[in-house]
């Protein structure tokens, strides 16, 4: 015999609802995309480093670029294929990835990471009042 049946079952139901939240939340929201579509540059086929490296380590590269350019005055970076790039967010990165909302914000929104401090100083291309 189960004592306090009502309370026990309520507790278990609450536990299951919380535990299975990904299941019903994603189904109800209907916002899950089979694959995240990013607006990619059309002309260029490769970034300055490997695709997987850029996916997981782009933040390190950007910080390194910031330190190199702003603090050390180094303005060049040797990329994957030995090609030398000019260190510049606006001039290099954003010349291909022109669409912030369709590129940066897609993944950052998807993973709940607020866009970092890039845009405190840098212009957002295509945005009103932008000089790029």
């Amino acid at each position: 015999m189960v004592y306090d049946k009502g309370k026990v079952i309520t507790g278990l139901v609450v536990f299951l609802i919380i535990l299975l939240s990904p299941l019903w939340y994603n189904a109800l929201s209907g916002k899950v995309e089979p694959s995240l579509k990013l607006s990619m540059p059309k002309e260029e086929k490769s970034c300055i480093e490997e695709r997987m490296f850029m996916r997981s380590n782009h933040m390190d590269l950007l910080i390194k670029w910031r330190d190199d350019a702003v603090r050390k005055g180094i303005r060049t970076y040797k990329g994957l294929d030995g090609k030398v790039y000019r260190i510049s967010l606006t001039g290099t990165c954003l010349s291909c990835h022109i669409d912030k909302a369709g590129f940066c914000d897609r993944c950052h929104g998807y993973s709940g990471v607020k866009t970092p401090k890039c845009w405190d100083c840098h212009n957002i291309p295509k945005e009103e009042g932008s000089k790029v």
């Binding site: 990904p22 929201s29 916002k31 998807y110 993973s111 709940g112």
Partner: peptide, 10 residues
């Protein structure tokens, strides 16, 4: 960790 399970992230 729910940000890795829920879409959109609450």
């Amino acid at each position: 960790h729910l940000r890795l399970f829920l879409e959109p992230v609450p």
